[in-house]
Nucleic acid binder design. Structure first.
Lengths: 156, 156
DNA sequence: TATTGTTATACTCTATAACTATA
DNA sequence: TATAGTTATAGAGTATAACAATA
């Protein structure tokens, strides 16, 4: 393992949480007051994986099935997501965002993205390109393991 | 605001949480079973800001003062951090890691860093350089606002 | 009188255990 | 018999309110 690899790993471990802190803070600032962070993450996940089941969600968000079930209860009762039975396997549940859920999610996401864009608007083009390339590479690297757990979600 | 800035902001918002998820998962995997994530974050913060006060911590971690106080109770009782009175302002508290606290922190951090380094070990040198540069730039960008809240911590 | 931190109390969130329904 | 999800109950974590000590 060369030195640059270790240095880079160190930098990633150091900087990524810093950025994440800002993203979280902004999201928190903008989201409707009565949505918790796990609920927000849940909505974001369902947005990316329409029709996800409860089990898949609980694995991804890191909650137990009962806790996830209760969290979903809250979102359903506020009409932010819809919960219907899976068409072929009636044990399963099929979750998706309502229109209102989409709106809530966007209302939090967009100002955050705008904030970050403004922050970066003074950067030299070379720096922007480096960031863009870095993000592409890192996405490849960190996506694989993340998608494994979604196999069960492939069929709806 | 040019298009590349917005694209890059989008990528950052998309990829950073993905990486963060991996970091969190690894940390969780390795840390002593009876330390919560907020406790872990607290220890990491104290490591970076030796002698931090309770108020500074609660602001940074995002807990109220009473909650922070209780969390610290738990860490002190397990001999992971030490809590002494500030030398000049005796209302304040002066927090630092114990030797054991350092060990616990490292025991969680190091395997995570190693994991990430291994993940990146196959990358082309150009990609590594792009990541390194991106991290430098992003650090500058996201550090400023973060350090503001630490002014009160400067003097011990 | 303002600031720093702690104690008391209540509530929310999450987990484990037991259960129901479907495959 | 195994899997997906829900309900019941208990414990941990966090907040608000009231308080103590120092500046």
């Amino acid at each position: 393992m060369t030195k640059i690899v270790q240095d880079t790993a160190q930098q990633v471990m150091d900087v990524v949480p810093m950025i994440m802190r800002t993203i979280r803070a902004k999201l928190r600032e903008r989201r409707a007051a009565d949505i918790s962070v796990p609920q927000f993450r849940t909505m974001a996940f369902i947005n990316r994986h329409e029709g996800a089941s409860l089990s898949v969600l609980s694995t991804h968000i890191g909650l137990t099935l009962p806790s996830m079930s209760k969290l979903i209860d809250g979102l359903v009762s506020r009409n932010l997501i819809s919960r219907t039975a899976h068409s072929r396997d009636r044990r399963k549940v099929c979750l998706s965002l309502t229109l209102q859920g989409h709106d809530e999610l966007n209302a939090a996401y967009q100002p955050t993205q705008k904030y970050i864009a403004e922050k970066m608007s003074g950067l030299a083009e070379e720096d922007l390109k480096a960031i863009l390339r870095a993000m592409q590479v890192l996405r490849e690297l960190f996506m694989l393991e993340h998608e494994e757990e979604l196999n069960t979600n492939a069929e709806r």
